[in-house]
Simulated assay, not measured.
Amino acid sequence: MTEPRIRRRRDDDMDACVEALATVHEADRYPVAWPDDPAGWLTPGGLLGAWVAVDGPRVLGHVALTRTEDAMAVLAGRPAAELASVSRLFATATARRRGVAGALLAAAVRAAENDGLRPVLEVEEGGRAAVALYERSGWRRVGSRPGDWTTPDGRTALLHIYAAPPAGTP
């Protein structure tokens, strides 16, 4: 396997993105409920950009950057117009422990900062591996709120909101 490359997502990547997402859903229950339109789920409203990690024609991971909803902005303590939300971040099982998720996260952060926006994100409390990645990368939790869905164990989802470290922080 060669070193994965991070690049902007193209329209012709979508089938491979959906296939990769299906493997993540099967292994990790992300997303919790399989969407009726997985390509649409990977292209949420307010999309500012999306990137993929590729190894040849295979998609190994994905991340999107979107406009931030007002409820999340309130918890982040900034106007929504100053923020960009990192979302739809995943890496396939074969890409884990290779830095793929971290590289995708860094690509989204760079894009937000290049546009003068502060990156934020939400993660469900049960996403321990994701939380560990964010905290290792210097992100800090700025708030929490209940989600509008139920987790597989029957509890209401609890979403933690994280803010990226200030631009230029190592």
Rank of each mutant, 00 (worst) to 15 (best):
M1V: 11
T2I: 07
T2V: 07
E3N: 09
P4R: 06
R9T: 10
D12M: 04
M14W: 12
M14K: 06
D15H: 07
D15K: 06
A16V: 04
C17A: 12
V18E: 00
E19V: 13
A20N: 05
L21I: 10
A22C: 09
V24N: 08
H25S: 10
D28G: 06
D28P: 03
V32K: 07
P35M: 08
D36H: 08
D37L: 05
W41F: 15
L42P: 01
L42H: 07
L47T: 09
L48W: 06
A50K: 00
A50I: 01
D55M: 01
P57Q: 00
V59I: 11
L60G: 03
G61N: 03
H62I: 06
V63Y: 04
R67M: 10
T68Y: 10
A71D: 15
M72S: 09
V74I: 11
A76M: 06
P79I: 11
P79S: 15
P79E: 15
A84W: 02
V86F: 04
S87D: 10
S87R: 14
S87Y: 05
L89T: 02
L89H: 02
F90I: 01
A91E: 05
T92Q: 08
T94Y: 01
A95Q: 07
G102L: 10
L104F: 06
A106Q: 12
R110K: 11
A111K: 00
A111P: 00
A112T: 01
A112V: 02
E113K: 10
E113Q: 15
N114L: 13
N114K: 05
D115W: 09
G116A: 07
G116E: 11
L117M: 11
L117E: 07
L117K: 10
P119T: 09
P119M: 10
E122M: 12
V123G: 01
V123N: 05
E124I: 13
E125V: 05
E125C: 02
G127R: 12
G127I: 01
A130S: 12
A132G: 11
Y134K: 06
Y134N: 03
R136Y: 12
G138A: 13
W139N: 03
R141Q: 15
R145D: 08
R145T: 13
D148R: 14
T150Y: 05
T151V: 08
T151E: 14
P152C: 04
D153Q: 10
G154T: 02
A157W: 02
L158P: 03
A164V: 03
P166R: 15
P166K: 12
P166Y: 14
G168C: 12
P170S: 13
